[in-house]
Structure formats: structure tokens, C-alpha cells
Design a protein around this nucleic acid. Structure first.
Length: 404
DNA sequence: TTGGAGTCAATAGG
DNA sequence: CCTATTGACTCCAA
């Protein structure tokens, strides 16, 4: 019985989120800060058979997060859509989060259920080209509202007519400003001190260097060590703790991705015109990051990117000519046997003219991107693929703990 | 408690 | 305006 008790009906009862610091700002004409108990974000596809986003995430097949973000970035830039608008209206995330997500997506199998949600949303959003139009309309409305506010100094909250340029999106008319479901109101104040907002700590480069050095010695320092570090650097203990958390866990887990970026640059440069890869321009002396964990092996990457890429060329989806299938190799168990393919989910995720998601099932799309820079793209695709393999191989981020 | 994951939101650059 | 970075915080699971 494949029953899954993952239905934790959690509803954080955010007691009250007082926003007392607002000093009578004349802004905020209509703030419709209602929070729908249900799904705050409108799912891109209207008819999900009543499936909540969470259910969809749970049922989702493996998604190629890298391909998805790539496509999203492409679409956003092509249409001049910003991360903020996209994040807030489609993903329910802030701009910073979106940036991070798009810049260094984690592979599907490394994501928790929660972490997969944004990717499912993105995939869903990509599935329907009309969503782009909707977002653009939303953008126009925002701009319009902004202009209006700017002209009439007194924010007159007029009815939000939607008589914009010709296009009207049938449903989902309201410019819903989706409320963050679980805002992290970090107001640990017990009093009503109007503004005790502590300034953001900004670590000096030397401090970071020192911390990195310490991290190299001890990725998981003991409380005592932390204390010492804090006093030595004249930082708060909590700051040091946070730094280690952020560096070793959150950011640290992305090291391989950062490395990949470097590789991409180098390799593409090399492939671009046989140019000399040159050495890493960065400060070589600094001991900081690149504490490479070896396993980089397989330097065949620089091999001729020519052939070798035929095996799936024809299975590509039309508009994503350069996606690199990965993910499966590392996680054969997931899709190995018991994935019930077919059905509503597949119909939702498997729409051809979007980022393909099915690894092996490969929606037979005899597509052929006929023209232009396909060669170059192909080359790039190959490189990316290689890079991914390398990363995969080197991705063993085993927490080496050479304690002393 | 502690580590991990996911985010937020301030801020630095463009 | 927009995007990238990152210290701090929340939620969870072991």
C-alpha cells in the first residue's frame, strides 16, 4: 500500500503580524492584504482537477531543474520581465530568492518537497505560453498604477480598471498580490519599540577570509571554537554561527555549482575559438574557496565537442534545444521502476512545447530546430552536458572532517 | 540541540 | 528601474 502520510496539515498560526513601523506612509492605496487560507498563488493551469500545488509536487516526475531555470531565464529576459514580478506573482518568492534559484538550481533529487515547489510552478508556468502574456499584462498594470500614483501625489485608490491595451485575460483578472504564506516576521521584539531594526551586518573581506580559513580547518567548529573565532574577529557569536551555517550548508552546497560556472566559462572560451583557457584569474594566493576536493578527473571535457551528441538530438523539445539530461543517472531509484507514468500529471508536465521533463520517455517530438546558430547551441549543449557529468562525478561533497 | 533546507530582505552594483 | 549577494531567521527532522 503506497500510502503516504505526508499530509501534515500545517497551518502556521501566525498570531499577529503587526506592522507598527509604518509611519503613515501615504502610499499603499489598496493593499488587499488578504490571505487566502488555501493556495495563495494561482496555479498557472486552471484545471488541475483540484490538485493543490503540494499534491502536484508530490506527484511530479523528475524535473530537470537546470533546463527549467534556463528556459525561465530565457523567457524572462526575452520579454523584459523581471525576477521580482515573476517571483512574487508566479512563485510566491521574493526577488532575491528567485535570483538564487535561477542562478544555481539544485538538482531535483537534492530538493526537498518544499524546494521542488518553485520548480513545479515554473514548469507549469512554462507549459502555457499564454502565461507570459499574462505576466506582461500584469507588468503593464503595475507600471500604470505606478504612474498614476506618481502623478497624483495623493494615492487615489481608483478602481483597478483593466482597460489596458486591448488584451484582456479572461479569468484571473484581479491583480492579486499573493501574500507570502509564511512571512518570516523577524520581529523578535517584545516591546513596541518602533524601530529597533538592527543594521545588517556586513562582514569585511578580511573577516570572510578568516572565516573561510577557519572553515577549511574545521567545517563544523565546536562552540568553543566559535567563541574563539568570534572574539578574535570581534564579531558576535551568533554571526559566526550564522556564517558557518550559511557557508557550509547553504552556500557551501553550491560550491560545485559555482565551480561549474567557472568551468563553463573556461570550456566555452576554449571551444569558442581554441583560445587559451588561461589560468583562473582570481587571486591564486588566497586560500579561500577552491579547496577543491579532487575527483575532478576526467579531463576529457576539452575533447572535441563535435559528434557524440547525436543520441538524443531528435528527442529534444523544440524550444529547448540545449537541455542536458542529468539527474537520472544519479538517482536511478526514483524513476527506475514504480513511477506510474501517464495520467493527469504527465499531461500537465509532459506538454511537448515546453521544457521536456520525462527523462526516458522522451515525448517523441521530431522537432528540428532548423536554422541559425543551432550549431553553436549544440556545441554549448554538449559542453554543458559534459560539465554536468563532471559535476556529477565530483559532486561527492562528503563532509571531510579531519578533526584535530 | 544541531544540522539542513528554504527564504527573506537589506544592500551593493548595473 | 533590475539582478546578485548574503546575514539572519524559521521550520523540520534526527
Amino acid at each position: 500500500a503506497p500510502e503516504s502520510p505526508l499530509s501534515s496539515a500545517e497551518e502556521s498560526v501566525k498570531s499577529q503580524q503587526e506592522e507598527q513601523m509604518c509611519q503613515a506612509s501615504i502610499q499603499e492605496p489598496s493593499e488587499t492584504s488578504e490571505s487566502q487560507p488555501g493556495t495563495p498563488l494561482p496555479l498557472p493551469l486552471p484545471g488541475h482537477a483540484g490538485l493543490s500545488i503540494q499534491e502536484m509536487v508530490a506527484m511530479s516526475p523528475e524535473l530537470d531543474t537546470y533546463a527549467i531555470t534556463k528556459k525561465v531565464k530565457e523567457v524572462l529576459t526575452d520579454n523584459n520581465l523581471g525576477q521580482r514580478l515573476f517571483g512574487e506573482s508566479i512563485l510566491g518568492l521574493t526577488q532575491g530568492s528567485v535570483s538564487d534559484l535561477l542562478a544555481r538550481p539544485k538538482p531535483w533529487h537534492k530538493l526537498s518537497l518544499k524546494g521542488r515547489e518553485p520548480f513545479v510552478r515554473m514548469q507549469l508556468w512554462l507549459n502555457d505560453p499564454r502565461n507570459v502574456e499574462k505576466l506582461m499584462d500584469m507588468k503593464r498594470m503595475e507600471k500604470k498604477a505606478y504612474m498614476k500614483r506618481r502623478h497624483s501625489s495623493i494615492g487615489e485608490s481608483h478602481l483597478l480598471e483593466s482597460g489596458l491595451s486591448g488584451s484582456d485575460l479572461t479569468q484571473s483578472a484581479s491583480p492579486q498580490n499573493l501574500s507570502q504564506q509564511h512571512q518570516q516576521q523577524q520581529q523578535q521584539q517584545q516591546q513596541h519599540q518602533p524601530h529597533l531594526k538592527k543594521p545588517r551586518v556586513v562582514l569585511a573581506p578580511e573577516e570572510k577570509e578568516a572565516l573561510k580559513r577557519a572553515y577549511q580547518q574545521k567545517p563544523y567548529p565546536s562552540p568553543k571554537t566559535i567563541e574563539e573565532l568570534a572574539s578574535q574577529l570581534n564579531l558576535k557569536t551568533s554571526t559566526v554561527i550564522n556564517w558557518f551555517h550559511n557557508y557550509s550548508l547553504v552556500r557551501g552546497s553550491h560550491r560545485s555549482r559555482i565551480r561549474r560556472e567557472l568551468f563553463i566559462e573556461e570550456i566555452q572560451a576554449a571551444a569558442g575559438e581554441g583560445g587559451s583557457p588561461s589560468a583562473r584569474p582570481g587571486k591564486s594566493g588566497g586560500e579561500g574557496d577552491n579547496s577543491c576536493d579532487g575527483t575532478e578527473s576526467d579531463s576529457t571535457a576539452e575533447g572535441r565537442p563535435s559528434g557524440s551528441e547525436e543520441r538524443r538530438g531528435l528527442l529534444e523539445s523544440p524550444n529547448l534545444s540545449h537541455r542536458d539530461e542529468e539527474g537520472e543517472a544519479e538517482f536511478p531509484s526514483a524513476s527506475g521502476t514504480s513511477r506510474p507514468r501517464g495520467g493527469i500529471i504527465d499531461s500537465l508536465f509532459g506538454i511537448p512545447e515546453s521544457v521536456s521533463t520525462a527523462p526516458a520517455t522522451a515525448t517523441a517530438t521530431p522537432c528540428r530546430n532548423p536554422k541559425d546558430s543551432s550549431l553553436r547551441k549544440k556545441k554549448a549543449a554538449n559542453l554543458n552536458n559534459i560539465i554536468h557529468r563532471l559535476e556529477k562525478a565530483a559532486n561527492r561533497d562528503e563532509p571531510h572532517e579531519w578533526e584535530f
